[in-house]
Every structure is written in C-alpha cells, then in structure tokens.
Simulated assay, not measured.
Amino acid sequence: MRVVPVPLRLCAVLVLVPSCAWAGPDGGESGRPPAAPVGVTAAAGSATSVHVMWNAVPSAEGVDRYEVYRGPTKIEDVPGSQHMVDVTRLKPSTPYVFTVRARDTQGRLGPPSREVRATTPAVAVADRSAPTRPGDLTGRAAGSRAVQLSWSASTDDRDVVSYDIHQGGSKIHSVGGDQTAAVVTGLRPGTHYSFTVRARDAADNLSPAGATIRLTTPGSDDGRATAPADFRATTRLGGDGAYYLDLAWVPPATDGVVTEYRVHLDGTAATSLVFGGTPPRGRATYSFYLGREAGESHRVRIRARLPDGTWGGLSEERTVTTGAPAAP
C-alpha cells in the first residue's frame, strides 16, 4: 500500500501521474479528460457473469458514460450516473481482466483504470436447484444517503456464489456468497425505499426474493453516517527538527472502496490524499509536515470522497499543539 499526498492545486489523479493543472469544480480539471476511475473491483456473480464496480469520477464537464473493457475489448457502455455493471455471457472456469474508462460530456475519453481480475467458477452439470431465499432481512438508514442491510445466509445443494440486492424492481448491487451484509449509498434524503435480496449459485439459478424491507432516509444529513470514525490527531517532532501531524481513522462503511480523503486544517481544506494499490478497509493513517515552530495550535478534521463521487461528512474536530505532550 502506498499513500500519495495530493496538494489541492495539483491534479488529484492516481499515483505516479506527473501532469498537473488547476482544479476545476469538485476537484475536476477544466479542459482535460476525466481521470481514471479508482476503487475498481470485480467479483464473479455466477459461472457466466462478473459484477464490476468502481468509484464515480469527478469531472469539470461531467461524466457522460463509463466504458468497461474485457482485456483490450470494450464490452459495455454504462450511464455516467451509475458505477457498476454485470458482465454476462462469460465462460465458466475462466480468468478475466477488466478495466474502466470515463468519457465526459465533451466526448473526451480518460485513461483506463488499473486492471482487476476475476475467475468464474465451474458450472455444475445439470444443476437446476436454486438456493433457498435469504431470510431475516433487516436494515437501517445510515444518514440521508445510505442504508445498511443484513440478512441470514441461503443454502444451496452446491454453493451460493453471490447475493443480488434489489431496490424496488431493479438490481442495484451484488456481493459475494460469503457476505450477508451490504451498505447501499447514493440515495436521496427524505425518500422511501424498498429492498429485497436474492441468492445466486454458479449455474445462475436465482433464489426467490426474501422478505421486503422498507426504509426511509431522513430529510437532512448531519454527516455522521458517512464521516470517518474514531479520528485521532497528534503532533510529533521529526528527526529533521520539524513538527509533523499524525492522523488515524476508520474509513466510513460504503458499498464500494474509499480511495480519497481531504484534510481540513483550521477550517480550510489543506491537502488531499489518494491511496494507491489496495486502500485500507480497517484503520488508516497519514502524516504531513506542519513546520518548525513550537507552540502552534491547529484544528484538524478529515472527510472521505464516497464511491458515488460525493463528499461524506466531516469527522470530529481535533485540536493539536506542536511541542505539547500528547493528550492521554
């Protein structure tokens, strides 16, 4: 894992990209193609399908669509408002490589994402038995833009490969067969939603839907549900005689991967950071230079860019003083 600090004047792109420009609205770059999608994942949904997800790409001109590639071949066009797709008609027991590119409303095509790999499982001969329906579906609103769902596992005469999550009559998400929980983001405040879950096996047999759960997101968002948790901030004196700010936090729960954060110092956005490779699911840490003066106090908070492209809530604010003993 590598963490790359990205000053706000610089292009907030993926690691090891040297070009720079003035940032446009919401972090996009005016007059430039959209950045490569980050947080790309791929997981087999059955012996003949793979579920591909990615984080929404901020763009000054807006993203018109995403192009999904299997190896060098474009196989799907996905509307810019979505950031997941089921790639179907694949071969069982076969490894696949996927990348995603964003195209903005001006027609400019951004660079490809990093490659992600998935292998479809073998299909059982003459498997016509569907898994049992998932049970005990429960959920709660997690702020005004997300819900948390959980259910009891289905059984199958062979194996459950994935669970499909439906919002109303539309499939909106998929998780692996070993998971019985999900966080659905990108919802609207003050809105009624209904969710169901279905289990799928390697032969693409789909279970009946479990019980429907109805949830309502609150009309206002205090940001706590999408804010980094257990945020800590301390200062230390480095070997070069300068003071550094050490941060630690737990990433917010989302239905995708959080790769980007913004640090606010004394009420102002001070720096952004992008995790290259595999971002941490557990506790994350980051350090940056403060200066050489002792006795300087600073207020610091942090927020995450969510997979739907919006900024989550700000963490609790911490106050630190260079040269002062760390708080117990």
Score class of each variant (00 low, 15 high):
T321L: 04
R128D: 02
R114M: 02
V300D: 01
P5V: 00
T41R: 15
P131G: 07
V300R: 07
Y261L: 08
G267N: 07
A242M: 11
H192W: 06
L314C: 00
A327G: 02
H173S: 08
Y244D: 08
T234Y: 14
A142Q: 10
G276R: 11
L14G: 15
T310L: 03
Y96I: 09
R262I: 09
V15D: 06
P25A: 15
A146C: 05
A209P: 03
C11K: 15
V87K: 09
I172P: 00
R108E: 10
R114F: 00
G39K: 13
P25W: 14
D222I: 00
P92Q: 09
R2K: 13
V175R: 14
A211V: 01
H83I: 05
G71D: 03
D156Y: 08
S220H: 15
H298S: 04
A21W: 14
A326V: 12
L10S: 14
P252S: 08
V52H: 13
A203F: 02
G45D: 08
G45N: 06
R103A: 06
L187R: 04
T322L: 02
P252M: 12
D221M: 06
D178A: 13
Y96L: 08
T285W: 03
A56I: 07
S113R: 03
R2F: 15
F195C: 04
G45F: 00
D86C: 04
T196H: 01
V147N: 07
T321V: 10
G239W: 04
L149Y: 09
Y96A: 03
V175F: 10
A47F: 10
I75Q: 13
A202G: 14
T120R: 03
Y289T: 06
P208S: 07
W54Q: 08
Y96T: 04
D77H: 12
P279N: 08
L149S: 00
G295I: 04
A284D: 10
T216K: 13
D127N: 13
T105S: 05
G239M: 03
V123W: 01
P7A: 10
A56E: 14
V263S: 04
A142K: 13
T271V: 13
P112C: 06
